[in-house]
């Protein structure tokens, strides 16, 4: 019942990253100017430029002075070979000048962990947090509210787990791994009112049901990790307390008061560091309308 990822983590290959970037830049309205093997040049719209390239003072200046803005062109290589090839091409077209060590790289290599790719992922997460979609059919539909995100099991270490839960707005039935079941289906954009027109339950009711389901999910997990973390925390607090207690006799009253504050500060830090907690991070919400036949398949 837990929605764990069994396949390898996504975006770890250069082909996956290239495909992701193509889809992302097309979705945000960027033009693809050059497409060569493992290499792309994208022309960025202003809003995307602001999200991906951090230069607030530049934008403040051009907007205040109403300067015309030359669109930014990203030159991205998705493997080392393409990177070397395209750098060489650019160098042949426009030599770098007399201080080669001062020259900036003009083609950015996109690998997992590169700062630009991190910002692309962040932008996709932000822009892709809401959706209203329905199956293309004129037949009867059932409305669903879906939330996606991660459970984070955190103490002085953490572990995350993807989830996707949905609740039926007709009967408050809960279905987990919902996104995994519908992501490859043929869905198209619509409006919220279109989906909610005939629903029997409100969104508030649905959200309450989902919150209960999320809490039940957390409660159903093995909490051995939390027991261990609590035991460690208790041990650390006891050690701290014994340490300060052993110093107390040699101190004046003023010194004791200062030491008490120091001990409290350290206790707070330990509690902050090691207290076990389960956080359900909601990343995405969607209203989804599915054909009746599809719903039956979901229930199985």
């Amino acid at each position: 019942m837990t929605a764990t990822l069994t396949s390898p983590a996504p975006l770890r290959t250069s082909d996956e990253r290239l495909s992701f970037c193509d889809r992302y830049f097309a979705s945000v309205g960027a033009r693809t100017l050059v497409a060569r093997p493992m290499y792309r040049e994208y022309e960025l719209p202003v809003d995307v430029d602001k999200e991906l390239i951090h230069r607030p003072f530049y934008w403040m200046w051009v907007e205040t002075t109403r300067q015309p803005v030359e669109p930014t062109i990203l030159r991205l290589a998705f493997d080392a070979e393409a990177h070397a090839r395209e750098e060489a091409r650019l160098n042949a077209e426009q030599p770098v000048g007399s201080f080669p060590w001062a020259a900036k790289r003009r083609v950015e290599l996109i690998d997992f962990g590169s700062p630009l790719f991190d910002r692309v992922l962040l932008s996709a997460s932000h822009r892709g947090r809401l959706a209203c979609v329905r199956e293309e059919s004129r037949g009867e539909i059932v409305p669903w509210m879906m939330v996606n995100g991660v459970f984070a099991y955190t103490a002085d270490l953490n572990r995350e787990e993807w989830f996707s839960y949905a609740v039926c707005l007709d009967n408050l039935q809960i279905v987990d791994r919902f996104y995994e079941r519908i992501q490859h289906r043929d869905l198209c954009g619509t409006s919220a009112s279109d989906i909610l027109r005939d629903s029997r339950h409100t969104l508030q009711e649905a959200w309450c049901a989902l919150q209960r389901a999320l809490a039940d999910h957390a409660a159903a997990q093995d909490d051995g990790w939390a027991e261990e973390a609590m035991a460690r925390l208790r041990g650390d607090l006891a050690q701290l307390s014994a340490y300060y207690e052993s110093l107390r006799n040699e101190l004046s009253d003023d010194e004791r008061a200062l030491m008490r504050l120091e001990q409290e500060r350290k206790e707070v830090a330990l509690i902050q560091k090691s207290t076990p907690r389960v956080e359900c991070h909601v990343q995405q919400v969607a209203l989804v309308a599915l054909r009746v036949q599809q719903v039956r398949q979901l229930s199985h």
Partner: peptide
Amino acid sequence: LFRLGAMAR
């Protein structure tokens, strides 16, 4: 973008 957002997370 929703699907890309899910993949990104």
